[in-house]
């Protein structure tokens, strides 16, 4: 097991192994997504209060979960990169940031689309919305820092520190925003009492959550491979790889 992990940590082996794994993750993701969407859009019953419009949660909620999950992945791999100088971890952190930002953006957009018919406004300074927006800013900061530093290895360590600082701050920001909001306005919209969800709505939700996770794994593997190639472009194994691709053509 340990040997396998060590081999995986070398960029060259990571490249070949991940290349073999990516289609598996991709196809499973597609299966789950089709099942989840079908179940969510056709099988699940309409909500007795919100009608059909609630169905956006099958995108919205998994996206919001992913936005937080990916930040954690990014911070942990940033930390591994900082401590053990593992190149793969650095590549993972760098390639996770844009995906996480996209999921955060998706969660915000779908939330706003849902909010218009439900709350009558595209945007409400609700505590959850606000913390999600701030999470997007934190992602954009990491991406901008990554882009601003030319040396990729230094960029990875710098944004690793930023991601860790962000992780310490996220709970503080979240709870201060919750506190701020509950103080400003009463419990009108903030406490949308979570109704115990119907099993026919829960199943597609979980299917979509699994699909989104698999989607992330697929995309992050592809992006990390690209990142590894860029970082190691002057090394022999990448050059050889380029040669074999060229001769195949």
């Amino acid at each position: 097991m340990w040997k396998f992990l060590q081999r995986l940590a070398s960029p060259k082996h990571f490249y070949t192994i991940s290349q073999r794994l990516t289609p598996w993750f991709g196809w499973t993701c597609l299966i789950f997504m089709v099942m989840g969407l079908y179940y969510g859009l056709f099988v699940a019953p309409a909500d007795y209060q919100q009608g059909e419009a609630y169905r956006i949660i099958f995108i919205h909620v998994p996206a919001a979960w992913m936005s937080m999950f990916i930040y954690m992945v990014m911070a942990v791999s940033g930390m591994i990169g900082l401590i053990w100088r593992m190149k793969i971890a650095e590549a993972f952190a760098a390639s996770s940031a844009p995906i996480g930002a996209s999921f955060t953006f998706l969660a915000l957009v779908t939330g706003s689309l849902w909010g218009k018919p439900m709350w009558g406004a595209w945007w409400v300074w609700d505590a959850r919305l606000t913390s999600e927006l701030i999470l997007l800013f934190l992602y954009l900061g990491v991406i901008a820092l990554n882009a601003a530093i030319e040396d990729k290895r230094i960029a990875a360590r710098a944004s690793g520190i930023l991601a860790l600082v962000g992780v310490v701050n996220i709970p503080i920001i979240h709870y201060s925003v919750v506190w701020w909001n509950t103080l400003h306005q009463g419990a009108t919209i903030t406490k949308l009492d979570k109704p115990s969800i119907h099993i026919d709505m829960l199943i597609p939700l979980l299917l979509m959550a699994v699909a989104f996770k698999l989607f992330y794994v697929t995309v992050v593997l592809i992006r990390a491979r690209c990142e590894v190639l860029e970082r190691e472009k002057n090394l022999a194994w990448v050059q050889e790889l380029g040669q074999t691709v060229l001769t195949k053509k």
Partner: peptide, 28 residues
């Protein structure tokens, strides 16, 4: 934030992107 970008030529705008979100609890 400043320590992260001190080596960069144009850090000014970047600094606000890095630091302002972290300032929110103090502001609140």
């Amino acid at each position: 934030g400043v320590a992260l970008i001190v080596g960069l030529r144009r850090g000014g705008v970047l600094l606000s992107l890095l630091v302002l979100p972290l300032y929110i609890p103090v502001l609140i």
